[in-house]
Every structure is written in structure tokens, then in C-alpha cells.
């Protein structure tokens, strides 16, 4: 049998498939459909210091080959997540990645400090790339010095490995990746959504109440592959690839580009069983292309 397990900072993944933050809530809805222990890990919904309601509606719009979202980091706040969601998640044999968001550097530090002593959380994923919040988020993620600064501050207090989720809405993602690596990041997650917009043909006005939103889905896969490919050759820390994955073949393409694991986002909406179907297919696809483990495929495009 093909070996699909992989060891990464903080994460002992039985397979490389992880639902992406924001596309899976805290897993409760999907747990009605399948055993969450089948998943390599789960990147849970962003945590901010205080509860956030998020943006006005409409928050989503369909696009060709994808969708736009402008949820606005709606979450019950880190304290409620610790009280209600983490104890429930503890029953599953899967690696929980806590996605951390905020409006300023101090917010990230506060959330990480609160989650530090939660054994359920195996690693942090800093969301410095959300395009849908006014402050912080993408603001921190588009300048190398700011991205490095928040990473450094979090690394000082974090008791678990820190992964940084990067924005594709930049001219040079490699520059930011290197700055974050130098600041001590244990790994990178790329990419977050691409900023986009749609207009209503009747009114002429934006469909999303937030005007702009983040584009995800198959439409962005080739952008993600390119960015993983460029970044993987420039840094020495592992990469989790995200962007439009909807099959085991897509996973293999991300492995070739240099990703060691993947996150699956919008596909969970198209097919709620999507992640488990990909996990089931993956060993067969690897075998079909002549690999006996994930490692053999990782970075194949440039090696």
C-alpha cells in the first residue's frame, strides 16, 4: 500500500488532506456525514480575540470555476472556541490546526497565548491574508516587513509550531515567504483567496455587500501551483498547498509543485464528502503514476 502519511512541524498527518479554514467551520456539520478521524487534519475557522459577526449579506457570489466570499471572519471568539469547540474536537483522531486572525499584531499574540495550553491544537496557522477585513489581515500579509514582524511576535510566545498563510494578492510572494521564514515561521500555507469582484447586471452594483471578496475554487488552482512552485524552491520550510483542489490528481500536482500537504476549501461546498473521496483516491493515483510514498512526488517539478 502506498504510504500517504507525512510528518510536518507539529503535524503527524496520516494523509495530507486538510479541510481549509473557513470552509469547514469547526467540523460539526461534516461530522454528521462522516468520521472526522479520516482526515489528515482540520484547519478550523479563524479565531479572533473577540466574537465577530462579519460582513453584511450577500457574502458569497458564484463565478466561473469558483466563488467569491466576503464572510468577514465571523467567529465566536477565542474564548468560546476554547470552551465549546476544542473539547468537542478532542474526540477525533486528527490534527487540529488553529487558524489565528486579528486586526493588529497584538490580537494574534493574544489568541496564540490563549490557545497555547490547549492540547487539541497541534499547530497555529496565522491568517495574515484575509482580503475581507478592513484592518490587519491582508494588510499584514502584503508587506514583507509587516509579515515578518507579526510572525516574530507570535513565535516569541507560541508553544506550538507556527505556519503562516500567505496572500496571493502581492507582486512577489517569494519575497514575503522568505521574510516570514527568516522571522522564524515553521511552515507556510499558500495561497489564500485572490481578491475579486462581481457586478449585478440589473442594478450595475456589486453583488457582495463588502464590494470585493476572495476568489477560490478551481479557477485559482494554476495561480496556487505557480506560487507554491516558486516559493518551494526559495525557502527551506515545508509548504501546505491550497487553491482549487477537487481531486487526488490535483493533490499530486500540488505535491509536484513542492507542497508537502494540502488544504481543500471550496470543494467541501460542492461535495461535502469531497475530502474523504480525495483521501480514498490518493493512494491509487500515486500508484498509477509510479510512487510508493508522498515523499517521492514532493517537489518533482524542479528536482
Amino acid at each position: 500500500m502506498t504510504d500517504v502519511s507525512i510528518q510536518l512541524p507539529g503535524l503527524h498527518l496520516k494523509n495530507p488532506v486538510i479541510p481549509a479554514s473557513g470552509c469547514f467551520g469547526f467540523g460539526r456539520e461534516f461530522a454528521e456525514l462522516y468520521d472526522l478521524s479520516l482526515l489528515g487534519g482540520i484547519a478550523i475557522k479563524s479565531a479572533t480575540p473577540q466574537p465577530r459577526f462579519g460582513n453584511e449579506l450577500p457574502r458569497v457570489a458564484e463565478t466561473y470555476g469558483g466563488m467569491l466570499n466576503a464572510i468577514g471572519l465571523q467567529n465566536p471568539g477565542v474564548d468560546a472556541i476554547i470552551a465549546r469547540e476544542l473539547p468537542w474536537l478532542a474526540q477525533f483522531d486528527t490534527e487540529i490546526i488553529a487558524n489565528v486572525a486579528g486586526a493588529c499584531e497584538e490580537d494574534y499574540v493574544e489568541v496564540v497565548q490563549k490557545l497555547n495550553d490547549q492540547p487539541v491544537v497541534k499547530a497555529f496557522e496565522l491568517n495574515i491574508s484575509c482580503p475581507n477585513v478592513k484592518h490587519g489581515g491582508i494588510g499584514l500579509g502584503t508587506k514583507p516587513e509587516l509579515a515578518a514582524s507579526v510572525t516574530r511576535m507570535v513565535k516569541k510566545v507560541a508553544k506550538k509550531p507556527v505556519w503562516v498563510k500567505l496572500s496571493p494578492n502581492v507582486t512577489n510572494i517569494v519575497e514575503i515567504a522568505k521574510a516570514v521564514e527568516d522571522a522564524g515561521a515553521d511552515g507556510l500555507v499558500l495561497i489564500n483567496t485572490l481578491m475579486g469582484m462581481r457586478l449585478d447586471l440589473k442594478t450595475g452594483k456589486p453583488i457582495l455587500a463588502n464590494v470585493t471578496g476572495g476568489l477560490s475554487g478551481p479557477a485559482i488552482k494554476s495561480v496556487a501551483i505557480r506560487m507554491v512552485y516558486q516559493t518551494a524552491q526559495a525557502v527551506h520550510i515545508p509548504i501546505i498547498g491550497v487553491g482549487g483542489i477537487s481531486s487526488a490528481r490535483d493533490v499530486l500536482e500540488f505535491l509536484y509543485a513542492g507542497a508537502s500537504a494540502v488544504e481543500v476549501g471550496m470543494y467541501n461546498f460542492v461535495d461535502p464528502y469531497g475530502c474523504v473521496k480525495i483521501i480514498k483516491e490518493l493512494p491509487m493515483v500515486l500508484e498509477e503514476y509510479g510512487y510508493s510514498s508522498l515523499h517521492e512526488a514532493i517537489g518533482r517539478s524542479y528536482r
Binding site: G25, L57, V60, A61, N69, F269
Partner: peptide
């Protein structure tokens, strides 16, 4: 009625106060 994405309660696209 609302614009939805997942339809099962996970994505927070269709919330109302």
C-alpha cells in the same frame, strides 16, 4: 431566502442576526 454556499451550516455565508 439567501445566497448560500455550503447549504449545511459550515461557511457562514447566509447568517442573520
Amino acid at each position: 431566502e439567501a445566497r448560500m454556499a455550503c447549504g449545511i451550516g459550515a461557511c457562514m455565508a447566509c447568517v442573520a442576526r
